[in-house]
Amino acid sequence: MKPILITNNPLVWQTYPESIQIKGSFREVLLRARDGIHRGQRLITHPLTGSLKPNQTPYKSIILDEEPGNQAIDLVSLQMIEKSLATVDKLGPIKVQLTAKMLEDYQVIDLSFIESAWDSLRPLGIKTR
């Protein structure tokens, strides 16, 4: 397993400097994940982690497995990312004005989901940073 972390969350960039930084929206993180899945990567974390909906928080971090040499498409991952994109489109854009404190808290919560995933991967000896 070779996990890669893609994220638009500056706090995750800072915590995991090896993460792939997306300078774009929640939806763009999902699109980047979908591109990876089309190239043979698999989802390690669910694209819709958290109860904060895509029309509430701007931040999203996703961990994928990039197995060297694998080009076969994982259909479970593909279906999950497509359904998640459909959910993002259904819920529409963020409607409230986000304050600096809200942005900070959304970043902390998104980071906590990634920490939670690393906790699950620790028994596999996965290097997390």
Binding site: H46, V76, S77, F113, S116, S120, L121
Partner: peptide, 8 residues
């Protein structure tokens, strides 16, 4: 209801 698919 964990975040990783392996946990699920």
């Amino acid at each position: 209801e964990n975040v990783t698919l392996a946990d699920k």
